[in-house]
Simulated scan of single mutants.
Amino acid sequence: MSLFDSITPKDLSVLANLVALTLTDGKSASDNNVLGNFLAAISANILNIASQQENLKSLEEKQNQIKDLQKQIKQLKK
């Protein structure tokens, strides 16, 4: 089970707000700007990794489908 499987979208939104408020409390606008940009960079990297994971999984599934079709063709030729 994934960490996020049991969290509703509403709860996830509330959690994100709480984390943001906690991280920015008592810090200057300049510090918060740097922190926000840093977290945005991390987020972009996480999304890039997830995208490539999905791409590789899709490619593997397509290769498996091709192998299955090739097996079926060989069987039909017999």
Rank of each mutant, 00 (worst) to 15 (best):
M1P: 04
S2N: 14
L3G: 04
L3T: 11
S6W: 10
I7M: 13
T8N: 03
P9A: 03
K10L: 12
D11G: 00
V14S: 03
L15I: 08
L15A: 08
L15Y: 02
N17D: 12
N17E: 13
N17W: 01
L18N: 04
L18R: 06
V19Q: 02
A20R: 12
A20W: 04
L21E: 11
L21C: 05
T22K: 13
T22A: 10
L23I: 13
L23T: 07
T24I: 03
T24E: 13
D25N: 10
D25I: 04
G26E: 11
G26R: 10
S28M: 07
A29S: 06
D31G: 00
D31R: 14
N32I: 13
N32A: 08
N32S: 11
N33E: 14
N33C: 12
V34N: 12
V34A: 14
L35Y: 02
L35M: 12
G36F: 07
N37C: 11
N37E: 15
N37R: 15
F38N: 13
F38E: 14
L39N: 05
A40W: 02
A40Q: 09
A41P: 00
S43V: 04
N45Y: 06
N45H: 10
I46H: 03
I46G: 01
L47H: 08
L47T: 11
N48E: 12
N48L: 10
I49W: 03
I49D: 04
I49V: 13
I49N: 03
A50C: 03
S51N: 08
S51G: 05
Q52H: 05
Q53I: 14
E54W: 01
E54V: 04
E54G: 01
E54R: 14
E54T: 05
E54L: 10
L56N: 06
L56R: 10
K57W: 01
E61C: 01
K62A: 07
K62C: 01
Q63A: 15
Q63E: 15
N64K: 15
N64E: 14
Q65E: 15
Q65G: 01
Q65P: 00
K67C: 01
K67V: 06
D68C: 01
L69F: 03
Q70K: 11
Q70I: 04
Q70H: 03
K71R: 14
K71P: 00
K71A: 10
K71F: 02
Q72F: 03
Q72R: 15
I73G: 01
I73S: 02
I73R: 09
K74W: 06
K74Q: 14
Q75F: 02
K77F: 01
K77M: 05
K77P: 00
K78L: 11
K78E: 13
K78T: 06
